[in-house]
Write a protein that binds this DNA or RNA. Sequence first.
RNA 1: GCCCUCUUCGUCUAGCGGUUAGGACGCUGCCCUUUCAAGGCAGAGAUCACGGGUUCGAAUCCCGUAGAGGGCGCCA
Length: 479
Amino acid sequence: MEVRTRFAPSPTGYMHIGNLRTALYAYLHARRNEGTFILRIEDTDQARLVEDSVKVIYESLAVTGLEHDEGPDKGGDFGPYVQSARLPLYREYAQKLLAGGHAYRCFCDKTEKQEEPGEEHDAPILGYDGRCGRLSEAEVQANLAKGMPFVIRQRIDKEGSTSFKDFIYGDIVVENKQLDDQILLKRDGFPTYNFANVVDDHLMGISHVMRGCEYISSTPKYILLYRAFGWDIPEHIHLPHILGPSGKKLSKREGSVALGDFLNRGYLPEAILNYIALLGWNPGTEQEFFTKADLIAKFDIARIGKAPAMFDETKLTWLNAQHIKALPPEKAHELFLKFYPAAITAGFDAKKLSGYIQGKVEKLSDLPQMTAFLAALDDNYSAELFVHAKNKTTRESCKAALADLQELLSGLGSWDYAAILAAVKGYAEAKGAKLGPVMWPLRIAISGQAVTPTGAVEIAELLGKPETLRRISGAIAKL
RNA sequence: GCCCUCUUCGUCUAGCGGUUAGGACGCUGCCCUUUCAAGGCAGAGAUCACGGGUUCGAAUCCCGUAGAGGGCGCCA
């Protein structure tokens, strides 16, 4: 059977990282099995429509390379791919349910949950009592004649139980009395997720329904719907949640959750994909670094886990550094260019700089701060930095070394890495010293900091002779 | 409140009846005669949530308990 998976986000205005993982898994499963990956927009909540948010979805999929084969912008044989454009379809299928006695019109007042200010109102919310389901045909007709607004609810026989086999979680059994007569078609004529999802997944030929495990509890209701229609039930694959640092579902309150945030903060799309792929899935080998192509080759839904996973930005950062390191130098430079401040690109050999620091960049957004000292030395650095136990340096030893270095370097004919290194090395050897005691003061003098993104010689080279000498003089004065 | 699910180092995880419980991030130390970092190596870190079974033998199978997460919307 052909594998057809779908990613069905609602247009909320941003791409949640948890949703992105769902999209990734659905994409990978489709690609792995030479199937089809479909994008469907679930915009059935008219009250929550966010302007332009469909664009965010397209951009997110494009930047991460999760290309869909069918969708609103790509077309396909199962469209339309936007739920608001499928209203007649839902109406038609709701009618079928009505005709078969699997649904009924409900004329009750709205019972929607209020957005409560003081959250902890966890008063038990009882499901609908089903009273309209017991209305006689005459009563229904009378209400209709009066023009009373109504919704269509699923009629669920409260006897017995309903079960399904989840691919990850195994057999799930729920007693029918736990199942609410959920609303299928809202008063405004739009379907609820609960209805549209089932109808669309069937009509679009979805073979594997992949979604977050918050839907496990309501899946039996969907199963009942499939049965009422006499449809085959697709494979259900519920995914464990991604948790925030507090152990709750990842949410905006606890920092970044949107793909865009991570992109802005200098994470590479491939690193993000790599990291979230590993949240809930593993290859069964010890490989952790994956390109998208690797993931397609190795992804297997059989190795998705059950336990929720906490999102750990530290590990994402490490993975990001790995991906940056693996970039071809030209590509890395191209990306760095977008983050370098103007002072760097204007005043330095940025390409050379990129080459020197590529192995040390964790996030692209670190670049401005990492390179700031090149453009402008902060003269207020502490002279105490020169004192370093391991290199056996003191203020006095540094001052002496810098004085010698200044003379030596000012006499240097050519100013490049090899020449500078040779000069410094020669000096250290002549003094019978190791390189450390000489390099250390040089580094401090020309960078004003103990930690630099590249070595002292590279820095001197980038700075140029006049500036290097100027900074050395400044350091001598300070000492 | 009712229902569903989950539970191996701080974190992500391997494990599917017999392992010194493996790897990764992070942490610590050492090495690399350019600091820090990167890289290499080493180390600390898990009574496998707890309690009962089954079994010659259980992290692995069964039953309870606890904790955590999720669901119970005219939201998805």
